[in-house]
Design a protein around this nucleic acid. Sequence first.
DNA 1: TTGTAAGCGTTATCAT
DNA 2: ATGATAACGCTTACAA
Lengths: 331, 331
Amino acid sequence: MTTVKDVAELAGVSTATVSRVLNNSPRVAEDTRARVHQAIEQLNYRPNRLARHLRKLATQTVGVIIPDIQNHFFVSVVRGIEDIAFANHHVLLLCNTDDSPSREKTYIDILLAEEVAGVIICAADETISCKAVRALVDHQVPVVALDRELPDLSVDTVLTDNIEACRSATEYLITAGHKRIGLIAGPDYLAPGRERRQGYELALASYDLPLDPSIIKITDFTPEQARAAIKELLDERIPPTAVLVCSGLMTLEVFKQIQRRGLSIPDDIAVVGFDDTVMNHCLRSPFPLITQSTYDLGQFAAHLLFRRLADPTIPVQRIRLKTQLVFDPPP
Amino acid sequence: MTTVKDVAELAGVSTATVSRVLNNSPRVAEDTRARVHQAIEQLNYRPNRLARHLRKLATQTVGVIIPDIQNHFFVSVVRGIEDIAFANHHVLLLCNTDDSPSREKTYIDILLAEEVAGVIICAADETISCKAVRALVDHQVPVVALDRELPDLSVDTVLTDNIEACRSATEYLITAGHKRIGLIAGPDYLAPGRERRQGYELALASYDLPLDPSIIKITDFTPEQARAAIKELLDERIPPTAVLVCSGLMTLEVFKQIQRRGLSIPDDIAVVGFDDTVMNHCLRSPFPLITQSTYDLGQFAAHLLFRRLADPTIPVQRIRLKTQLVFDPPP
DNA sequence: TTGTAAGCGTTATCAT
DNA sequence: ATGATAACGCTTACAA
């Protein structure tokens, strides 16, 4: 392994000078700079990031904590983050939690020990996660909350406009004539669960429709619970004539189950789902989808992070990304 | 930031002893060990990974270089790798190359500078990539080639059984009565391109069917080129009655284009595609798919890496994973 | 403009 | 069994 020392020797200067060249210090003569650069070339020298970061007590590494990259939702999020990080000469540490607070905690401890420059996190559980994430904040590690909040913490946050998305989607169903609309939502301890339900309730209220708890199903966002939920809805004594499904993974499952029962959409039951995860790409979807630009979500989060890295004093930012109600898949 | 020094002070021992406890050295009295552990607890001390790794000149970081996480194929690959890495207390650096050798090179330089413990790579270009990857090998960084080969390098490799997969798929089409079978394959500089074409040719040969270059389309695996390819095939003076499409992304695109033309599968044209990326999940696929367990692919690669990390002397391994020809989607 | 030297937090060697 | 101390590769005061 070649080190600054080797370069210094070959260039006939001290290691300090090499370091200055490496860090583009202005206080170095042009010809020395040239000689050093030549030595670097010749030896194919790459400064050791570990050593550099240890010395500076600052890395060029960003921790990305998400539930599961296998959830289509996070794929482009991660890519969006990576592209911004790459442009800033930073590198991504990918951490999948499976929504387990304990695995999340383990990863946070590792990221802390790795002295990451910052962390972008989609928390496993908004209340529980705060405790672990606080350790990052206490150690001055910038944190960006993505898609889910960190309520006790004052950190930059980028969210989807959940309430308005579901309010308008529900309104769409209501104006289409539906009076009994089922909801398959997520847990209250996650913003996308809580707020999407709120949007739904808001719409019902503004049209003076009754809120029937028996057709509001709160799940943990998994397909398994979505399957149980849609089953229960369809088995109601008076089944809903429409249903709003509040995540991509669940929408797919609901679609499958409805198909399996031989029911038709929207004649037997109307559906509005979330995210163009799957079916949107391979068939003209038989129902509208609330879509979010997940790539943008990632990019925004990364932008917030690097902005804060550049200037830690700016006020905490909070961004809401708009959604779209899409009736037809892309060509 | 609490350091060994703080712990040592609180426990009333030297930093060396703390380090011994941290590294489970047997040469430390039980009561001192207890005192140190208590101090660690009390201070909530986490050993700095950077410092540790710099000192040991060995990290617990694995570089994962793939073309694009947005390609569904790599999603579970990465997750498979992560799960094994996590179990081994290692962490993942995710690098997307977009199949660009230059971006790949940049990432390899970074990984080298980060002193990663090992690298799992799906090369952008088997010939070009070798040059950059050789730097890793030269620096004794274990490398595992995934899905694509590193021909000039003697490294552990995990591949799909491409030839047999496409031979049997083509055979299936032949025994179904097809005599004029089109092929949409990948480039020769990638194993999945090259070998899948070989399997196709093998099958034709063994049934004494002619090889018609005009219905063999070599693409770069992108949907764009797949679209052009299927268009050309369908516009042939005598169009093929069947087509074998050699990647998941391309299969989806071909499916769309056939649909758009109002043609029906398999009556107008029979299709065999790759990977259960999309349509398999939302509708009973109208045609069979060659599927690979990408999660296993990732796990195997990671296993190879950690095996070599544990014992660098074992002979280079080469694994071929079997595929399945799937006619019906999972329930 | 350049060099010397200390130090980032850890571990390994050598004493004791 | 434990403690001093040097070293990993780099950056940055402080001198010169």
